[in-house]
Simulated assay, not measured.
Amino acid sequence: MHFLPEKIDNYVVNHSQEEPQILKDLTRETWQKVLNPRMLSGAFQGRVLSILTKIINPKNILEIGTYTGYSTLCFAEGLPKNGKIITIDKNEELETLQNKYFEQSGYRKQITQFVGNAIEIIPTLQEKFDLVFIDADKSNYINYFNLIIDKMNPGGIILSDNVLWSGKIVAALDPKDKDTKVLLAYNKLVNEDARVETVLLPIRDGLTVSRVL
């Protein structure tokens, strides 16, 4: 969902860096072969993720929610040569497609994939992270935050996607809508938790930037 007027949104996109060809190819194949292709970060948000990573210059990145690997490759653009990304997704059927583009990208050796339940996998990770991207099932956002906050280096950044949830966060709440209920609580949590300072950016479906103090 776009929250800006269409002409302004188009202008923003047209005056931002163009995505690399490999990401155009991945987008095309995702739309051709994978369910729910709207889950892709997309060209504009991908450029935001890329430039933020280049600014942060993280050594260790954790991505919760790989999907077809688009955002993984955007983050990889900002990795130093000794940096690495750990990315987790529960859908094993996507691993072949992810690997196809990871191999083509030149970042293969810097990417470690886990397939399974992130809530079970994260506690087993020994690394401290400079950048974490939360973009998986919305009902577990608070659980993910609580699992990763003590694994962050001071000054580390937590990015949280889809925090505007197509505008549902300001609409009348359906009592059966667990995802929106959790996102409302999550947005409140990261805004008030004394361990982080947070700004919510109205980029596409909402991207929260939380800096660990």
Score class of each variant (00 low, 15 high):
S71A: 12
I85C: 04
T27G: 10
N10L: 13
K59W: 09
I158N: 01
V115D: 01
I119H: 07
S16P: 06
P5L: 14
I86T: 11
V199P: 00
L52A: 04
P58V: 11
P20G: 13
A136R: 04
D161V: 12
D174P: 08
Y107I: 01
F129H: 00
I142H: 09
R195V: 09
T198K: 02
K168L: 11
G78W: 09
M1R: 05
K109G: 02
P175L: 14
T72A: 11
P5V: 14
T66A: 03
I122P: 07
Y67R: 02
V163Q: 01
I111Y: 09
I111D: 01
I55R: 00
E92P: 00
L184C: 07
N57K: 13
Y11I: 06
L23P: 03
Q110L: 07
L79N: 02
E29W: 12
P37E: 13
L26G: 10
G65R: 10
S139R: 14
D9G: 07
Q45I: 14
W165A: 05
K81Y: 01
G46N: 04
I51E: 09
N143M: 09
Y101F: 15
S50N: 11
V182W: 08
M39V: 14
N82S: 11
A118L: 07
I8T: 12
L213C: 05
V196R: 03
T208Q: 01
V48L: 15
L23A: 10
E29R: 13
I203L: 14
Y144S: 05
G46T: 06
W165Q: 08
N162G: 09
Q17W: 12
G206Q: 02
N99G: 04
T72S: 11
I85W: 09
T87K: 06
L35V: 12
N14R: 14
P80F: 10
L23E: 08
K176H: 14
R195L: 07
N91C: 06
L52T: 01
E95T: 15
S105N: 04
Y141Q: 00
K181W: 08
T180G: 03
K128V: 15
L164D: 01
N187R: 08
D177P: 02
I61T: 06
K178T: 13
E77I: 07
